[in-house]
């Protein structure tokens, strides 16, 4: 049986994190979600550094990235991921309350895979997360694991 990969959620606000987990609960995906609290922690998780040095190796199936976070914001994290040969192919989805043109443009410019604005209305949010979980957790084909390859594409 295929081992389902984790979903990494970068969210500094515990309420947002809880609500998002509740939404994943609806789709029975909550047990696969790992929550990190800021940009620095996100990169540590992905690179298996710091407190995540001993975690099981392997990248998540998708990174759900909030933009406004302490220490390192989502845009910076995205830039570093795209610049890192080991992380550059990781699917990244912005999950944010900002609809600002500036954030949208920056994210797409840096190669984000999707940009989702959190709906104010919770049932809308649950729907969004449900569809999101199905798409990124089950439907979407991930890039082949590059850890076995020496050459980059």
């Amino acid at each position: 049986m295929v081992v389902l990969k984790k979903i990494l959620l970068a969210e500094d606000n515990p309420r947002d994190a809880e609500l998002t987990l509740e939404a994943f609960e609806e789709s029975l995906l909550a047990n696969r979600v790992v929550v990190v609290k800021d940009g620095v922690e996100t990169l540590e998780y992905l690179r298996c550094e710091g407190q995540y040095a001993d975690r099981e190796p392997g990248l998540p199936s998708v990174l759900l990235l909030d933009i406004k976070m302490p220490r390192k914001d989502g845009i910076e994290v995205l830039r570093e991921i795209r610049a890192d040969p080991k992380l550059k192919l990781l699917p990244v989805v912005m999950l944010t309350s900002s609809r600002e043109d500036k954030d949208l443009l920056n994210s797409y410019y840096l190669g984000v895979n999707a940009y989702v604005v959190k709906p104010v209305n919770f049932s809308g949010f649950i729907d969004a997360i449900k569809q999101f979980g199905i798409f990124w957790g089950l439907v979407n084909e991930l890039p082949p694991d590059e850890s076995h390859k020496t050459n980059e594409i």
Partner: peptide, 21 residues
Amino acid sequence: SYSVSHDLRAPLRHINGYLEL
């Protein structure tokens, strides 16, 4: 206005979310 859109909306979303729950 950026902070308004971010920070003012977040607690509202939370209120709505928890009310729904």
